[in-house]
């Protein structure tokens, strides 16, 4: 008697991938929400005076120093202590902008790109070339900013000081109010 052959049935294994897809989508959403893209962040070094703690000595003054002033003027065009006002950049007696210049400047709506900074850079280069002091670090520059001035303007000045290759930069101490 002929033996009847048993038919071999191949079963297709049914793998349920739904939970895996759920988890993978959750992970994707989590990473998309939690991601902070790395920005190109840098820093500008500013060395503070050493040994200015308690009982320190008096610092020496170089008469050839350049003082960049960032003043705070009110709507009346005079210095103010109020919160509302405009930045005015000065070196010596020379004004580099009028009150409200950064806000009105039509060539650039971004104060960081204002031509004021190029003018300051050129002036610093001229001072550097004509420096006759004896300091090893070269021309000393003091950045003297009023307390109300937004930090971006101080960083813009510092940026131009660094661009001019000046190494001796100091921040003036804040005014003491009576």
């Amino acid at each position: 008697m002929a033996r009847r052959r048993k038919k071999l049935i191949l079963e297709d294994p049914n793998l349920d991938i739904t939970p895996m897809i759920d988890i993978v989508f959750n992970l994707l959403i989590f990473f998309m929400c939690a991601t902070k893209f790395k920005t190109t962040e840098g820093f500008i070094m500013c060395f503070l005076p050493k040994n200015r703690g308690q009982g320190s000595g008096t610092p020496t003054i170089d008469l050839n120093e350049v003082r960049i002033k960032l003043l705070w003027y009110g709507d009346d065009g005079k210095p103010t202590n109020g919160d509302a006002g405009y930045v005015v950049v000065k070196i010596g007696d020379e004004n580099y902008n009028d009150p409200g210049h950064f806000e009105r400047d039509l060539r650039s709506t971004v104060p960081e790109k204002s031509p004021v900074w190029t003018a300051i850079h050129d002036k610093l280069n001229a001072f550097k070339a004509g420096y006759k002091g004896k300091s090893d670090k070269g021309l000393p520059v003091i950045i003297d900013a009023r307390k109300q001035v937004p930090t971006k303007y101080i960083v813009s000045v510092l940026n131009e000081v660094v661009r001019a290759g000046i190494q001796d930069v100091t921040f003036a101490a804040p005014e003491i109010e009576y």
Partner: peptide
């Protein structure tokens, strides 16, 4: 970038009083 410089000065002051002279300002 919009914070008043007075608050940065306060950090400088606290650093100087503790003999910390190596500082840097973060910028983009």
């Amino acid at each position: 970038k919009e914070v008043k410089f007075q608050y940065v000065q306060q950090v400088f002051d606290a650093c100087v009083r503790n003999g910390i002279y190596k500082t840097s300002i973060g910028a983009t």
